[in-house]
Every structure is written in C-alpha cells, then in structure tokens.
Simulated assay, not measured.
Amino acid sequence: MAIQSDLNCDIREPYLTNNTRCAILNTLWGLNVVPQRYSQDLGDVYLRYYSEQCMNTLNSGGFEGIVSTHADIIQIIERLREPNSTRERLKDSLRDKFPDLPSDKSEVLICEIIDLAVRLWLMIDVGEMLHGFIPGQKSLRWEQGALADLLVKRFSPSVAMPMRVVRVKLDRLFTARNIERIAGLQIVWTSNILDHLRLMVDDTRIAIYHHASFLEHHKSNPVFPQGFIDETIRTLSLLFPQYDKKSRKWFKVQQNKYGLDENVSASGHLTTEERQIENFIFWHDRLGILKQVFDEAEPSTIGQWWRDRRRRVQWYTFWVAAIVLMLTIFFGMIQCIEGGFQVYKAYYAS
C-alpha cells in the first residue's frame, strides 16, 4: 500500500520525491529500494527519461480522463506484462474503463497512452512519436498482436553480413573512444534500444544506447528475446572496456556533458575470445558494418594521424616520412638564411 500511495501523485509534476522515485523503480524494475538508501546512480538517468516521455505525451492534452497519476500509467504497464496481453485486449479494456472519452478522439488517445506505457517499460520508441521526436531515430509500429511477438521478430538473430565481414576481428582498438577520435564518427547517445549501433547521416554518426542500469535490471524480462539483453550489455563492454583507463576517462567527460548512465563504464571487459563477432547474434550485422567503417576510415587531420595506431607499419612510415620532411625543410631554411648572410657580406664587406 505504501508504494501505491507514493505513486498517487501528479504525473505531470517535473520533480519526483525520493519516495516516488523508489516506488517507480521498485514497480518497473522489480527492486526493493527504500528512500533512505536511494542513490542517484541507481536510476536517475532512467527517471529523467521517464519524466521527459510523460511530459512530451501528456502535455498535449486530452489524457486527463485516462492518466493523471503515476499509478495510472503503471497499471497499464502491469497489463502489458500479462502473458496473454495483446494490443487489441488492452485497447478493449481501456475503452471499457473509460467509456466517457470523446468518440472522435478515444482511439487516438488510447493508442498514444499504450505506446507511452511501452516506452516507459521497455525504452523502445513505439508509435508515431509526435512529441519530442529526435531527428534520425527509428520508431516501432505496434498495431496488433502480442508485444513479445513483435520484439522477437524485430530483434531476431541476424547474420547476413558477407563472409569477409563475418570473420572480422573486434580488436582492442575497437572502442567508442577510438571510433570518435580516430574514425571521426560523431557519437549520438540514445535512449532508444532500436537505434543502438545504428549508423546515421551517411555513416558520419553512430547511435549508442547508454542505459546500462536499465539493461542490468531487465535481464529476466521475458518480453525480450532470450539472450538479447545480455548481448546488448556485452556490446557496451566491447565499446567501453571497464579496465581501459583512457576509455573510462573519456567516458567520464561524455557522462558529465550529456548526463549519461555512469554504469556504462562498469559493464565489464571482454576477453579476446569473447570479442569474436560470431558471439554476437542480435547485434552481429550492425557491429560488422561499424567495424568495416572504422577500418576503412582514413585520418583527415594531424591529430587523427597521431592517434591512429590500427596499422602500425603505416603509422611509423608516415611519421618517419613526416619527420624527414620537416628536417629537410628546417635545414633547407637554415641553408637559405646562411646563403643570404653570405651574399649580404659579399656585397657589404666591412
């Protein structure tokens, strides 16, 4: 009953008390956290996403008769969790529960509130996303049937890359830090699992899902395909190796700048055997494409040339040639200056 009372507060209120924070996380993540022991690194990043999603959807108006408190939206999420839940059954139950909704808007309002519940529960952008849409992101259309069936189809294992890419080695240089600093790709931090590891804008940007805490507390969520969450965590371990000091330092800067989940840099560290691309079945294709773009990227600035150690022989050759060139220019300038002095002295001998 205590959790229920903590959830009975205005869902449009931007500030969440510790009691409400704990009640939301305990209900949606299956935790047992008390307000006295709540820490910001547990779920503050997710709760910010939770509040933004609620504000973006509910502030458009018309939802007062359906959702007014956190308890209202969580009740819909609880129905989504039922094993035999389908979109049709959920829509029928909401129509029965709210018979006074305007007939011309009831279908749209009910569909939008169901999509909101899915986004809050699974962090998957479902629906048209009319409010708060981020350019370039992908959304999932759920129009009928069971949500679990849709996710199995959407996240089905895929190994469709050519053999030359399938056998690619995900070496230790293949980290998010080097993807940005060496390959020059801009990292777009996303809260939509659908966009994870997706290249955008002519392969100049890469989206990375950063909610490691959410993933850690949804390992046993049966709506996701078996093994999907564990593999997603391993992609974070690949891109943000826990024992790489340079990666951790780089991510700390990113975290402070963009308000990211700090547990990303604590996702673990993969061994050489675990970094084989064949061990990734859900994210296999996107990892293969990203690695191909990373390998084919050529340095375009002096800084990138200095940081690019992917081909060490080429790196040494380039810098030896650069040093020889600089020394040649340096000594050439000295000879020119010396020659100028000699000419000057020849004409103006004392």
Rank of each mutant, 00 (worst) to 15 (best):
G65Q: 15
R310E: 12
C22L: 13
D195P: 13
R248V: 11
R37I: 08
Q292S: 14
D72V: 10
G268C: 00
H218A: 03
P83Q: 07
S247M: 05
Q186F: 15
L42G: 03
Q254H: 12
I66G: 00
G43Q: 01
F214M: 02
T190G: 08
I110F: 06
R177D: 03
D202T: 15
T328S: 09
K245Y: 13
L31D: 04
L120Q: 07
P241Q: 00
Y344R: 00
F330C: 08
V324H: 08
T301H: 09
T17Y: 07
A183E: 01
R309A: 11
C336I: 12
A146Q: 15
A183S: 01
L120E: 00
H70S: 02
W250F: 09
G288L: 05
R307H: 14
I289C: 12
H70M: 10
I281N: 07
S220H: 10
G184R: 01
T20Y: 06
S158A: 14
V168D: 05
N256Q: 12
V253I: 13
V168N: 07
V188N: 12
R286Y: 07
E143Q: 13
D96Y: 06
T17Q: 09
L58D: 01
H284N: 07
H218M: 12
E78P: 04
R12V: 09
L42Q: 02
D72K: 06
K105C: 06
V159M: 15
N8G: 08
L109M: 04
F251W: 07
L147K: 14
E112H: 02
